[in-house]
Design a protein around this nucleic acid. Structure first.
Lengths: 153, 153
DNA sequence: CACTCTTCCTACCAACTAAGTAGGAATACT
DNA sequence: AGTATTCCTACTTAGTTGGTAGGAAGAGTG
């Protein structure tokens, strides 16, 4: 699996926004609406600002973020961190999780002795999906503060 | 996971060679050599010949193929198909299975709220490895002739 | 030896994608 | 009106991928 800079940045931005909601009123004065500005995300996670703006746009269009323009604008999650998975974010910015030469796994078009390969890609796809779809943003935030749990798989 | 044309071709070529060994033997031969030429692989699996040659070279350098030059030359597996996994082939031509922005997963270098992401990539990597390292070329050849189990999806 | 066949190896090319930049339009609040 | 922010499009740059070309090196045959 290749995790692109785009996907990586998207996850880090989502985590930073989720953390701001939890930490509650990050220094701003706590007026209730927890909006995080793109500029502050870019700084705290070291992401080029103009690049990040495009990513945030994708996340909003995918329905994961809510945005607000103007002086006190910014971004907020549309759902609680417990209900947003890593897979949601990955698919929002990166399309399909598994591709074979640019095509989705199930339509690779094999013939002859290679026919069995489709099953392999499907199995890989399922294995990846199981991991990323069962890990939520909340899980990752908790993992950060506590000791790292040994992989139970 | 992105499966490149290179990886895809490599697997198809390996399967075709494995199939030739099985089906072959060439009328009571038993000489064990059973060399397959690059040109015939290219034709039967519809792979550009010159591109395929570079791939076969990688597979040989990784110790998966044995080659022989000259008029009766060609390629053969160094081990029986039961002992070569999909993961072996993938790693031979593609390097690491999982990369985060070009780097191996464990050295992504996160900080702050994103620290938990490393665990996710490691889990994904493990899940992929489990699938590709437990599927052998022999498995795929057998699967081709039998009925394929319906995917529960 | 000359000849043929095949693998081996290097260099090269075209197209695409990823990563990042720039500049302005729309919107919201004071 | 003025300012701060998101929104959106177009562009640049660098690297990778997929593929090609042209031989050199080895292996067999007569």
């Amino acid at each position: 699996m290749y995790v692109s800079a785009r996907s990586d940045y998207a996850l880090r931005a989502m985590l930073a926004i989720a953390a701001a909601v939890r930490g509650g009123g990050g220094g701003g004065g706590g007026d209730g609406a927890e909006l995080v500005k793109a500029a502050s995300l870019a700084e705290v996670q070291e992401i080029p600002l103009s690049f990040l703006q495009g990513i945030l746009l994708d996340l909003r269009r995918a329905g994961l973020l809510h945005s607000h323009r103007g002086a006190e604008g910014g971004y907020a999650l549309t759902r609680p961190p417990e209900e947003i998975t890593v897979g949601d974010v990955l698919r929002a910015v990166g399309g399909s999780l598994t591709t074979v030469r640019g095509l989705p796994a199930e339509r690779a078009g094999y013939h002859g002795v290679a026919a069995g390969l489709t099953d392999v890609w499907l199995a890989v796809h399922g294995a990846i999906a199981t991991v990323v779809d069962s890990t939520t943003l909340a899980d990752l935030l908790d993992r950060e503060s506590t000791d790292r749990a040994p992989t139970a798989s």
